[in-house]
């Protein structure tokens, strides 16, 4: 404990009503929740996108291509704002029009945050997963088909297990990016780590201290995620001989 006469800022990180500790812990929990849900949603969209881009139907190729090109060309913050303000109001209108919901329906910032992050990272993951699928030797897929496996069995047994191995480094990068970009949803009022840091910083005027704490927590998240993905990569590569 610092014995200085000055009040130590670290004491303000205490738990409870007079400290910011619990706010930060809640913020971290929500950042992880938003990032994880957005990532899972993004993985689903990414699989669909990769399927569309690799499909033999030209119109599906074009949809997949347009999706990734547009999302990559737009700033993430703009997409989040667009999906939050324009997307939710359109969705509410549709739902009210169909009669599923009343006029008072509101989409929570959390749901909007997950949806928009998922949509953005779906595009980035599309190309990561597509690269993973393309890295599988074509002969293996042909052999599986020749053995009489249907498309879904071939996907489950041959493509998916091998694709994961090629895609994990890219998936890890996108996970690191989504945890960092999840800070952007504080702009649409979703509560997460940066929101916690900002409310602490603005109410105490100790900007440097609280934003540094916020940055360090994000850094910890990054380092822990890097270690986790390194383990995952080792596990996915366990059947591969090291030369």
């Amino acid at each position: 404990m610092a014995a200085g006469s000055e009040h130590s800022l670290w004491l303000d990180l205490a738990w409870g009503a007079e400290g910011w500790g619990d706010e930060f812990v809640r913020g971290v929990a929500l950042t992880v929740q938003i990032s994880l849900s957005g990532y899972v949603f993004g993985l689903i969209l990414g699989m669909l996108g990769a399927g569309a881009k690799l499909s033999s139907r030209p119109w599906l190729n074009r949809i997949g291509g347009a999706y990734t090109t547009i999302v990559r060309a737009l700033p993430e913050l703009l997409l989040i704002l667009l999906l939050y303000y324009a997307g939710t109001s359109a969705l509410v209108k549709v739902l009210v029009f169909v009669g599923v919901a009343g006029e008072e329906l509101q989409i929570s910032p959390f749901a909007a945050a997950v949806a928009s992050l998922g949509l953005i990272y779906g595009a980035y993951l599309t190309d990561v997963l597509r690269g993973g699928i393309e890295a599988i030797p074509r002969g293996q897929i042909e052999a599986a088909r020749a053995c009489g496996m249907g498309p879904s069995l071939c996907f489950r047994r041959i493509i998916l297990p091998q694709m994961i191995r090629y895609a994990i480094p890219g998936m890890g990068n996108q996970w690191l990016n989504i945890t960092k970009d999840s800070s952007l949803v504080s702009v649409i009022g979703a509560y997460e780590l940066l929101s916690a840091g900002r409310s602490a910083a603005t109410s105490t005027k100790e900007y440097i201290f609280y934003y540094s704490i916020t940055a360090l927590i994000f850094l910890t998240l990054t380092i822990v995620s890097m270690a986790l993905f390194w383990r995952l990569e080792q596990r996915a590569n366990r059947g591969v001989r090291h030369v």
Binding site: R198, I208, F218, L219, T222
Partner: peptide, 23 residues
Amino acid sequence: ILLMRGTPLLVQMYLVYYGLGQI
């Protein structure tokens, strides 16, 4: 490099803008 790549740009932006404002 670790700090720049491991923390969100928005946090860096706030730290620079409000932090320097505090100094």
